Amino acid sequence: MLAGKIESVRIGTPKPLPYRGKMIQSAIFKEAVQDSIYVSSTNLEGDVQADTKHHGGPDKAVCAYAAENYSFFTEKIGQAFPNGSFGENLTTIGLREDVIMIGDIFSIGECTLQVSQPREPCYKIAARHKLVQLPVWIKQTGYTGYYFRVLKEGILQAGDSAILKERGAGGITVAEANAIMYSSDVTSEQISRLLIEEALSASWRKQLTKKLASHA
């Protein structure tokens, strides 16, 4: 049975961040929480999103990222990427994108969480690290992280085990979902297979439906 661990839990609030000669608002700088924290159906207590269109809400309540991925970027780019560098809420151990499936349901602390979609790295990651190409590199590697929806609210904390309770029905890993979304030579059959997964978020369903239509 697949199981991982929560290495750290992080929350943040919007703060000014310079990007291309102007100031934007971002909550990508998140601080580690030492105590237990309540997770609601839309976010972690005290975690505030600057862009509620693309972050937070029922389908993207909790952002997770595998701690193991950071060493790749540290070695590739030559600068340190400590845990929390990509603004995730949960830094995980043992739960990388190539083993986690869309629709997987995990028990973490008192919470029940379900994988809803890969995380889509945006320009705010580039702004934080002053690397314009970083979001592209993240997509190319498939080391994107992923979002959970909350099926059962409750308390969790760093050190909790993440225990798989049920596998996603479609059998599609987060890494495979990234390849389907971003590859130019993906087939209609591959897109359709991902769209069949009921746990897939509304925003990814909308994007993939458009992509499928372009293959017609």
Rank of each mutant, 00 (worst) to 15 (best):
C111F: 06
I24C: 00
A50C: 00
I77H: 10
A177C: 10
H54E: 05
I11M: 03
G56I: 00
P121N: 06
M23F: 10
F72M: 07
Y123L: 03
I125C: 01
E97P: 08
Q79P: 09
I6V: 09
A199G: 11
K210A: 15
A50H: 00
L208D: 11
G21P: 04
I28N: 01
P58M: 05
G87P: 01
S188A: 13
K210W: 13
L195R: 13
S184R: 14
W137F: 15
K15M: 07
G12D: 00
L200I: 09
S116P: 08
D160I: 04
E45P: 07
E75D: 12
E97S: 04
A213K: 15
Y147M: 03
G12Y: 00
A64W: 01
Q157I: 10
A199K: 08
G46M: 04
T52A: 06
L212H: 08
A179R: 14
Q157V: 11
S40T: 07
K53Y: 06
T144Q: 05
I28S: 01
S214P: 11
G57H: 00
L95W: 03
D104N: 10
T52Y: 04
K152S: 10
G145P: 02
Q34H: 14
A61M: 04
W137I: 15
I77C: 11
A126V: 02
I108R: 06
V62K: 03
V115Y: 04
Q49G: 04
K211S: 11
V62S: 01
K139I: 13
T91A: 05
S161V: 15
I102F: 09
A177N: 09
K30M: 00
S192E: 14
I11S: 04
G154I: 00
A27N: 02
G168H: 11
H215W: 15
Q79I: 14
Y70C: 03
S161C: 14
T92L: 07
A175R: 13
P82L: 01
A175F: 14
K22Q: 06
M23K: 09
E166C: 14
I138F: 05
V150Q: 04
R167F: 11
E197W: 11
T42Y: 10
C122L: 01
I108H: 06
D185R: 13
W204P: 12
G57Q: 02
S201W: 07
G142R: 04
A177W: 07
E97C: 06
S40H: 05
L113Y: 06
G78R: 07
